[in-house]
Design a protein around this nucleic acid. Structure first.
Lengths: 225, 225
DNA sequence: ATAATACTCGAACACCTGTTCAGTTGTCAA
DNA sequence: TTGACAACTGAACAGGTGTTCGAGTATTAT
């Protein structure tokens, strides 16, 4: 069968106007408009016509509707901005001092600060269960490709799988460091991210104090301090 | 007049339950609940009581209401999550190839991918005017403390101020690199972020092709390799 | 012309929903 | 006890709102 063309070449002018109105109304009122409000703005005298267009927009995947529910619509094309995650910054991480880890009792948001991270950037489903962040102080993490001022986001953990980047407390060196973790036959190998540095070998007899797994590193490049 | 204490010490258990319900309902249905839905979940038999509590929550500043409008309520304490920014990933940056920069004509979102970044993490008011992102490929940026796979977010620029981290095209070396920029009397000094590397000096006679300023670096630490 | 299709209209319906109000209960102070 | 007040109930009301239906108009293909 032949396809009709008419003026409707994909998306009509009216579809666009409705879409724009929903967006602007949403911005102003913090909630979607009703069918009648759409009709009024778009000079559509009948609610059924608005409904008619809304259906088409929904079929086109530009809109989601919760039928029967007042103002139950939302744009999907324009606002696929995923959720954000508020990760508390518990403190700083630097050589010579143990890193602060979230208290065993689900510590509240009593962090001094917090950073917001888009969930879309989160690797696995680390859905912010109990992530926390630390600000790197000093150049001691330089062999982990992490700079002074960087923010590392980690997940509390006591053990790790091969290839994880972990925050470990090195007893003998009396410092905290970030390394890639590998288990080997005679112990553990802690591999710096920067291949120009040599790995640290830990014997099986020594305890390995893993504090957490690194999930993400954020560097705000403001200015060379 | 004496203050009565009763059980209502600030925020009652019921207030909290209502707040929690609104939050979870919102997450699941993408829109706020109605008064009756709240009442049903919280075992409140009368809509007027729900209204009663909603008023209190509004007075407490925990809730905003659009009276007369269906489901016209929203939590304010829980959602001060700032805006997000959608930054298009235009391609990869690697040694030996010029980096793709946004076309002079306001190129649309025809990028293959994009990353979402919280505006709260943005340094100045780089309010996403025309930011773009590149994915680092290879270890060539290692002296800039930037790893293979990292995402660098930059702002288009042809010149820079002292201390800016810039993406420059080095004609003689035939590669793109990220360095801190410093203007000096006899030319330009390009300083690696990693202090263990030496700076590159550019004579004033040679052209300096600055492609953009680095605003942020994001490293998703998923797994080694 | 004729039929098919897209679009528009107006009105009515039925439910959803916030609001209001008169009244009840329990607690606390005087 | 008495009164004040917060918490609560139940019901009804009025308007908002999505839905549906029958009919009309315009455009296009055949």
């Amino acid at each position: 069968m032949m396809m009709m063309v008419r003026k409707s070449k994909g998306l009509g002018e009216r579809h666009q106007k409705i879409l724009d109105f929903i967006a602007s109304y949403q911005r102003e009122h913090k909630h979607p408009p009703s069918i009648r409000e759409i009709g009024e703005y778009c000079d559509i005298s009948s609610t059924s016509v608005v409904n008619y267009y809304l259906d088409q927009l929904e079929k086109a995947g530009l809109l989601e509707r919760d039928r029967k529910i007042s103002r139950g619509m939302r744009l999907v094309g324009n606002t696929p901005l995923g959720d954000m995650l508020r990760v508390p910054v518990l403190g700083v991480i630097q050589a010579g001092e143990p890193i602060p880890v979230p208290a065993s009792d689900f510590s509240l948001f009593d962090a001094d600060e917090s950073v917001e991270v888009a969930t879309s950037l989160m690797p696995a489903k680390e859905k912010g269960k109990d992530l926390f962040a630390l600000q790197v102080q000093g150049d001691s993490m330089i062999d982990a490709m992490i700079n002074d001022g960087d923010i590392v986001i980690l997940k509390p953990a006591q053990d790790a799988r091969n290839g994880d980047m972990v925050a470990v407390w090195l007893n003998d060196k009396n410092e905290t460091t970030l390394k890639y973790y590998f288990k080997e036959k005679d112990g553990y190998r802690l591999q710096p991210a920067n291949p120009q540095f040599k790995p640290i070998m830990i014997k099986k007899t020594e305890p390995l104090e893993i504090k957490g797994k690194v999930v993400m590193v954020i560097r705000k490049v403001d200015r060379y301090n």
